[in-house]
Computed example of a mutant assay.
Amino acid sequence: MLHTAKAFLFDLNGTMIDDMHYHKQVWYDILTKDLGANLSWEEVASHMYGKNVELLIRIFGPDHFTPQQMDEMSVAKEKRYQELYKPHLKGLPGLETFLEEAKQKGIKMGIGSAAILFNIDFAIDGLAIRHYFDSIVGAENVKDSKPDPETYLKGAAELGCAPADCIVFEDAPKGVEAALNAGMKAVVLTTMHTADEFSQYPNIITYAKDYTTLLPLLG
């Protein structure tokens, strides 16, 4: 099923590493304790998609902070996240074996994430998996975040593959929607969302809790 693809494009957070709880904890502390937003844990979680700057604008409006302030807060947030998550950093079960199998089959691979490159570097270098990826597209590399298809279309272009020949690995509905908008099929990792939350998307190939269950699909 997966072996017919020419390229795999991976989201990062929640897709290759199960770290979204740590992001939520840091955002909750910053938004409610540091910045005084009256938000519940669930409300903070509902805003966690797209770029950090976009999140701040959704909650506080476009003119509450200057662009420089938002950039500084974004970096500060990620430093706090990395400090919290670093002792627990690990790939989802079967990830590295899956990447190695895909590489051996000649499947090109890239990362397409709303994370800033500072965070992408933290994860892939911490896991020592950078050598598997010939394209890395982060927040700084695109104008529009998911569900806009720009992230995945840029990754496909950098890998020299047509969108229809790419399969996206995602954990979030907005990411699957981005894949759909890019004309790509998607595999959903159910680290953060249940399958019923994706029922409106016709481009999903399969669901998996980790990569051990996906290995047989490589053929």
Rank of each mutant, 00 (worst) to 15 (best):
M1E: 00
L2K: 03
H3E: 14
A7N: 04
A7L: 06
F8M: 08
F8S: 02
F10R: 00
L12K: 01
N13P: 03
G14C: 01
G14P: 00
T15G: 09
M16P: 07
M16V: 06
D19C: 08
M20A: 06
Y22R: 07
Y22P: 06
Q25P: 00
Q25V: 13
T32P: 14
D34L: 05
N38K: 14
L39E: 14
W41E: 13
E42Y: 05
E43W: 13
E43S: 11
V44E: 10
S46Q: 13
H47R: 12
H47E: 15
M48E: 09
K51I: 07
K51P: 07
L55Q: 15
L56S: 02
L56V: 02
R58M: 08
I59R: 10
I59T: 02
G61D: 01
Q68W: 03
Q69P: 01
S74V: 04
K77N: 05
K79E: 11
K79I: 00
R80L: 12
R80Y: 04
Q82C: 03
Q82L: 03
Y85P: 13
P87L: 03
H88Y: 15
L92T: 02
G94W: 06
L95W: 02
L95C: 05
T97I: 06
E100A: 02
E101G: 07
A102L: 03
A102C: 02
K103Y: 10
Q104N: 09
K105Y: 08
K108Q: 13
M109I: 02
I111V: 10
I111W: 05
S113Q: 04
A114L: 06
L117A: 14
L117Q: 15
F118T: 09
F118M: 11
N119P: 15
N119M: 09
I120H: 02
I124D: 12
D125N: 15
I129T: 03
H131F: 08
H131D: 14
Y132T: 03
F133S: 06
D134P: 07
D134Y: 02
I136H: 05
I136F: 07
V137D: 09
V137N: 10
G138W: 07
A139Y: 07
D148S: 08
D148I: 05
D148C: 09
E150G: 02
Y152N: 04
K154G: 12
G155A: 10
G155S: 09
G155D: 13
A157H: 15
D165T: 10
D165W: 08
C166G: 01
V168S: 10
F169V: 10
D171V: 01
D171K: 03
A172K: 08
K174V: 15
E177S: 12
A178K: 00
A178R: 06
A179M: 00
G183Y: 13
V188C: 08
V188T: 03
T191K: 09
T194G: 11
A195K: 00
D196S: 06
E197N: 02
E197K: 01
Y201W: 04
Y201F: 12
P202A: 14
N203K: 11
A208V: 00
A208C: 11
L218C: 06
G219M: 10
